[in-house]
């Protein structure tokens, strides 16, 4: 992963829990990777913000002290913390913000979220190919338009487009690519074109999985992918694939919100 300074703003949701601690570490590593100096800290104050200034000032200092202990002394002089007291359910997360959280993606679909799963840092296990499952037109469009530049900005150089297709009963072949319809081919072509423009090496894996989320997870494990990138679609039928995937996977998942 080469270093880049064009990344999005990185934030995480502070709670005094071990999950939040690992998310803070993951977020701080990304901030460092992008060469940025600010880590955004969200505090969920709900719909009833406290107005006791003494408490608020003391809390801010306490939270910063705690985060500094969590992420290590290396960042003390280099990283600044911007605390945002928000209602997580209603706050409009800016488009250029990437929230590091395992839970937030399930709560809000209008935000770019990176769920680190159980990983301490991105690419701690070496560089690899980012798996990009391409779904319906709207989700794929978001993935390509917003997600791919993010991936390039993060310094990844290789991506794998993964397309799950239904079996076309009129086709006898066992090759999944023969079962892809015109729309899927167009989506794949536009994704490949976008990857070319960003200078990303790419390849594609078509598949026919009965369980889409599991198929994506298995594909990610097979190529030892450090990250899965997915976009949320406009329509929902039986739940979202990114949500289903997050439940089962141990690979970090970055979802592009429905802006």
């Amino acid at each position: 992963m080469k270093k880049t300074g064009n990344g999005p703003n990185i934030g995480f949701i502070f709670r005094d829990t071990p999950e939040s601690r690992s998310e803070a570490f993951f977020a701080a590593e990304l901030v460092r990777h992008f060469g940025q100096s600010v880590l955004y800290v969200f505090i969920d104050v709900g719909s009833d913000p406290m107005e006791d200034q003494d408490l608020l000032v003391e809390e801010e200092q306490g939270i910063i002290r705690t985060i500094q202990q969590w992420i290590g002394t290396k960042s003390y002089g280099l990283m600044r913390f911007t605390i945002l007291r928000i209602d997580l359910k209603t706050y409009a997360i800016p488009k250029n913000m990437l929230v590091i959280s395992n839970e937030f993606g399930n709560m809000r679909k209008e935000a770019n979220v990176l769920s680190p799963a159980y990983e301490g840092t991105l690419c701690a296990r070496g560089e690899g190919e980012v798996l990009i499952p391409l779904g319906t037109r709207d989700s794929a469009l978001r993935t390509v338009e917003i997600g791919l530049p993010l991936i390039a900005a993060m310094g990844f150089e290789k991506v794998v487009f993964y397309h799950t297709t239904f079996r076309d009963k009129s086709v006898m072949s066992d090759d999944p690519s023969d079962h892809m319809n015109e729309s899927a081919r167009e989506i794949l072509e536009s994704a490949e074109e976008a990857a070319d423009q960003l200078g990303l090496f790419h390849r594609s894996i078509p598949a026919m999985d009965t369980d889409v989320a599991r198929g994506i997870n298995l594909a990610a494990q097979r190529i030892s992918s450090p990250l899965i990138l997915m976009g949320y679609g406009d329509k929902i039928w039986f739940g979202w694939y990114p949500d289903a995937l997050r439940k089962i996977t141990l690979v970090p998942v970055m979802t592009i919100g429905r802006y």
Partner: peptide, 15 residues
């Protein structure tokens, strides 16, 4: 031990 926040949900009690 100094808790970092006075909010019950932030220290994990209401979670």
């Amino acid at each position: 031990v100094q808790a970092p926040s006075f909010r019950l949900n932030i220290v994990g009690i209401r979670n």
